[in-house]
Design a protein around this nucleic acid. Sequence first.
DNA 1: CGGGATCCTATGCGATACTG
DNA 2: CAGTATCGCATAGGATCCCG
Lengths: 107, 107
Amino acid sequence: MAEVEDVRREMRRALTMISGKWKLEILWLLYQRTYRFGELRREIPQVTPHMLTKQLRELEGDGLVTRKVYAEVPPRVEYTLTDEARTLKPAFESLLAWATSWDSVRG
Amino acid sequence: MAEVEDVRREMRRALTMISGKWKLEILWLLYQRTYRFGELRREIPQVTPHMLTKQLRELEGDGLVTRKVYAEVPPRVEYTLTDEARTLKPAFESLLAWATSWDSVRG
DNA sequence: CGGGATCCTATGCGATACTG
DNA sequence: CAGTATCGCATAGGATCCCG
């Protein structure tokens, strides 16, 4: 039986997992298909390699993204969502629905 | 018709609105009833007056919370959720459901 | 191609003290 | 009771250069 404090802690953790500056964009793209590092860079032009790496490593550490390295020349690295990340989608869309509807009320 | 970039921007804004360190706790409490400043302090013992004020002002600025001042001695200030904040609840719970279910998978 | 290393800035957060 | 003012630290984020 979940205590109220546990609930708040879980919520905080969930938000932290998706609250990095570029994580939303990354997740959004990966919902559609697997991406390579360079492809993500092109889709999100403002992000530096440094930051993109950092965000991807955090997502990976949180179990939302899988990193697959191919032993090729030139090197190839692919990023894919985990099943856990895919089960997030309804919440994602629920939050989005709220964000946009609320916006339309305000103008 | 919403552009992809607008969508991402709205999502980012929505997350920012609820991503302060104590905002989750505050919203959580205000879903149940109206609270006074001092009551919130007692419910969230770790928060300083400074931070509580800051978070409440941000929530107010984002249209999630209403601040009502009573011209009494001693002063009384009550915080209540707006309708916009109440329509957030489904997304809130959807995210919570994901957070807890995902946690149970991992152990 | 897909990063890592280094250095720097901006912001969030907190401790402490004071006030109408 | 319900805040405000000031200071300082920690972390997030970013610019630039370098590398297997």
